[in-house]
Design a protein around this nucleic acid. Sequence first.
DNA 1: CGTAGTATTGATGGTTATCAAAAGCGGTGG
DNA 2: CCACCGCTTTTGATAACCATCAATACTACG
Lengths: 270, 270
Amino acid sequence: MLKAPVFPDSAPMPPSPSAQVISHAGNRTGRADAESVRCLICTVREHNLCSSIEDQDVGVLAQATRQLSLPPGTTVIEEGTAASAFFNVISGTVKLFKSLPDGRRQITGFADAGQFVGLSNSRTYSFGAETVDTVLLCRCTHAQIENLLAEYPRFARNLLTAVTHELTDAQEQMLLLGRKTAREKVASFLLDRIKQYHRTHPHDPDAETTASVPMTRVDIADYLGLTIETVSRTISALRRDKIISGTENHCIRILSIPNLQDIAYGLKSI
Amino acid sequence: MLKAPVFPDSAPMPPSPSAQVISHAGNRTGRADAESVRCLICTVREHNLCSSIEDQDVGVLAQATRQLSLPPGTTVIEEGTAASAFFNVISGTVKLFKSLPDGRRQITGFADAGQFVGLSNSRTYSFGAETVDTVLLCRCTHAQIENLLAEYPRFARNLLTAVTHELTDAQEQMLLLGRKTAREKVASFLLDRIKQYHRTHPHDPDAETTASVPMTRVDIADYLGLTIETVSRTISALRRDKIISGTENHCIRILSIPNLQDIAYGLKSI
DNA sequence: CGTAGTATTGATGGTTATCAAAAGCGGTGG
DNA sequence: CCACCGCTTTTGATAACCATCAATACTACG
């Protein structure tokens, strides 16, 4: 595992206090200044929260956020530290996790391009976040989020939808963790990765049968509530059974999606 | 398990369409009509979403909702059916769950007094809900929720906070399901039940050491990702180890909260 | 008081964890 | 270029925890 420098909370921020950023008159004119362009050309804006803010107001967004590129294995959020920032993933994958005092770890989800990270009700983060690969993200303080929520009802509505979606995913993952076998867990995981690849590569003709797995076996194991050995053995077994193929560890080809679905939902004992 | 009649979606509702209910002038006067009183005297309003609506507007709430009392084992939401309603638990406990085709079930949470149930992004519910004991709840259509969201920014803000809280709980539960031992799971569950009892019985002098467990062993097992036998054995073991006491199955007395906490977080091997 | 559901306890087995070692992979530098 | 090193992954042997199967005890309720 890479040595993980803590994400500097003192990273360069817009000079003016957040409350003023939001009401900054210069950003309501629709003038496409250097900052605004960043949001206007953003590859994920139409798919994420930022779509709640119209093109004309995008300067507000650009001034409220700060874009960052982080190498693999970088700590974005350290579990238990003061909760002050919110992140939008532009590209790459971030893992979210919770730990026990003795080091056991549960990855609660992976945030891919278009998803957000860092909402918190309490004063501190109840979870950690770390980059899986090279990640481009937008950073925004909680104070600025509060301003956007107060100012743009659509933003509040979309954030609610996004969090509700996260909750639905979490419930599905609880079913997996509590009631599925190792084989069913791995099959479910691969199906999720296919869906994710399809979302982020809609024009790839192989998108239907490709799963992008940028994370290591350790991460997969911590996500599925298994050990790395069991994950490895199960993937090998799926390969033997001609359900998946490909010798590459981080790109898996699916030979039979229906079979994989049957396994994931316990419909096939084999 | 009780035969579970499906909750009738054709239950008596306010006569007027929801959109009109919200803008119904008569409810903005502050006049405490019969309906409004129900919300004004509600025992959980100050602790839940409804606190977002001021006393003067409470008639809006009263007309938008319908109160119901349901016996134990009643289906409130059937997994996979059209998502149309939202529920607020006034008293009692509701269990939320997801199932696999072969009947394996994972309870994703228990909604106690003050909590809500039934938010959904998709056209159908991705989960089921069933009463654990006798439950009093307020029912409200999704359309009416949308109206409240649009009309009362504080309602939207509070709902976001509530869903974020649910998500935090879900992440904690994923850690439990994926990485804790049976003993740690049961200890964590009992601590949660103590907290819940404390919230709903703040004036009981024994609240610090009492856990109310209205659900059966089957429900506990399906919540913790165990079998009923393991739950039963583990509770017996905690009793033998003088960490809990009481022969009653649905009311457990805690002898040592610090010990229980150590067990729950893996700090104590014994 | 009898019955059905619920909970406890015991015996045994299976799935997955743990321990261990070897093989593969990627980067660095001689 | 290839040898070397650290890291990741795979594969094997064994063990532990929890599930399964089975029987008994308990509780609630008509």
